[in-house]
Each structure stands twice: as C-alpha cells, then as structure tokens.
Amino acid sequence: MEREEKVLDIVLESLISRCDEIKKSLISFLYRLENEHQKLDWPAFLDNFALISGQINNLLKILKSEKTPPLRNRIFLPLLLSPDRDEDLAKLTEGRVVAFNHEMVPDYLRTKLEPEIESIEAKQIVKASTMNQEVGQKQITSINKIANTIIELVRTTKDEWESGSTQRSSIPVTSSIQDTNIILAAIYLGKGLKPSTITPKTEPRPGSIGPQIPGQSGPRPPGISKAPSAIKTNIKSASQVNPYGR
C-alpha cells in the first residue's frame, strides 16, 4: 500500500509539472497574440500550436502509462469548506480561487461535463450511431479526397516556387549599377553634361532692311511711297508766342 502511495505521489508531481509547462506555454502564446500580433506570421502560429500539442501528448502518455495507477479508482473530496478567504489557496491557484466554499466545490470537483455540453455530446453520439456505414464511408472518402487535394496543391506550389527561385538566380545580369549612378548624377546634379553654347548676334547684311527708327531717313523698299503726315505743324516765332517779349 505504501509503495502504491509513493508511485501515486510521483505520478501526481509529474502531472503537475506537465500542467505547469502547458500553462506557461498558453500564457506566452496569449501574450504574443495580444501584444505582438502584428509581428506574428503563420509559421510562428504553427510552432506555438505544435509546442502546446506536444506538451498535451506528453501529459496523456503519463496518464496512459502502465506504471500510472488508475486515477479513476481514487476519490477526491474536500476535507473542509469555509466561506473565508484562504491565502494559501489563493497563492496556490494564482488568485483564481480565494475560498473553497460550497459554491466553488461543484465546479472544481465535478467528474461530469456541464448539462448543456453533456446533452450536445449525447446528440452527437446518437447521430453517429444511427448513421449508415455506407454514408459514413462516403463522407470519410470525401474528406480524404479534399485533404489530398490540398496537400497536392501545397506541394505543387512549393515545387513551382523553388524552381522559380532557381531560374531567377540563373538569369544573367543585364544592368549596371555604375551606369545607373552616372545617369542619376546627370539628372539630379548635371554631372557630366556639356555647357550650352550661346549663339552670337548676327549683323544685318548690306542691303537688308533693318528696323526703322522714327525720324531716321533711309532707303525704302521699292514700290512703297512716303505716307502723308496727318499731323499739321504751326511754327511761330518766339516774339509771337511770348506777349512780354521785347
């Protein structure tokens, strides 16, 4: 009897340590989901799920081990119920349970599911038992076909991506970084461009008609006569203009 009790204590310590590992992994994953969701990608999600799944499988292996005594033959019951706050219990449960009273015992020491979940599970069991074997086999075949199609699609996409990356690496380089830098320097800084030449003014050739200045006499093109002036001038002497002239 003592040997069985020692084995039970060892198994319980191992189960508690495995549960602590699962709890830490869940807390870490939830923290990353809440605070680092922008940096997480799909491989990171899969890694976290794989870690938690592996830890749960290790816990189940301990429960299914032949060395583990059958826990179903053990009865777990409270020795004392108190409505007062229990500091040791609050520390042990990290503040989730502060008092082991009549309200908490049915939830934490129950051996069956909640009535709502239990009724849903019973309906699913009845539905599965009444299903025809041929119909069930067809559904299994359909699900396997969908899964195989998805696997094949993923494998094909992976092969195409790997072959495309290989082809991209074998393509010869057709550009030059040095030439690109020269073009950019010419566009933004004018480096390497020749200065623009200024065309000198050409003198009018002899016999050419240049711009006529008012009052200046010069040759007129043939066939063009002098236009009569429309302004009449009246020139008077200074004595006639100034009445005080002597």
Rank of each mutant, 00 (worst) to 15 (best):
E152L: 11
K201G: 03
Q212V: 01
P195C: 07
I177W: 07
K112C: 04
P200S: 06
S217E: 11
K64A: 07
T157K: 11
P214E: 05
E152V: 07
K138E: 10
T197L: 08
T156E: 14
T202F: 01
I140W: 06
V135C: 06
E5C: 05
K232G: 06
S239E: 14
K61A: 09
A230W: 07
Q167F: 12
N73S: 10
P106A: 02
L40W: 02
T157D: 09
S14E: 12
S170A: 14
E114L: 12
K61H: 08
R18C: 03
Q167D: 14
S14Q: 13
E36L: 03
L51T: 08
W42C: 05
I182H: 11
E114M: 06
S163P: 05
K123S: 10
D159E: 15
L189C: 08
A99F: 02
K24V: 10
E103T: 10
R72E: 15
P78E: 04
L30N: 09
Q216C: 00
I177D: 14
E103C: 03
N148M: 14
A230N: 12
R72Q: 12
G223N: 12
S217K: 07
E103M: 05
D179M: 13
V126E: 15
E121K: 14
T149M: 08
S82F: 03
P115N: 02
R220V: 03
K127Y: 08
N234R: 10
L80P: 01
N101C: 02
N73P: 02
S53D: 13
I182R: 15
T130I: 11
P204Q: 00
E13R: 15
S217I: 10
D86H: 04
R220P: 00
P206T: 10
L189V: 07
P221S: 12
Q124K: 15
L40I: 02
E121S: 13
A122V: 07
G95N: 03
M131V: 06
K194P: 15
L33W: 02
G210N: 01
A186S: 15
T93G: 00
D179L: 13
P221N: 09
T93M: 01
L63M: 05
P243N: 12
R220K: 13
G210C: 01
P106W: 00
I120A: 10
L51P: 00
M104G: 00
I182P: 02
I120N: 08
T174M: 10
R18H: 06
F29M: 08
S170F: 09
L92A: 13
E203I: 02
L113S: 05
I117P: 00
A128T: 11
P219W: 00
L33C: 08
A90C: 04
S129L: 12
L15T: 01
R32L: 04
S170D: 11
P195A: 13
T156Q: 15
K6G: 05
I22L: 04
I146E: 12
K226N: 07
K191R: 13
V11K: 05
K232L: 09
L189Y: 12
R205N: 05
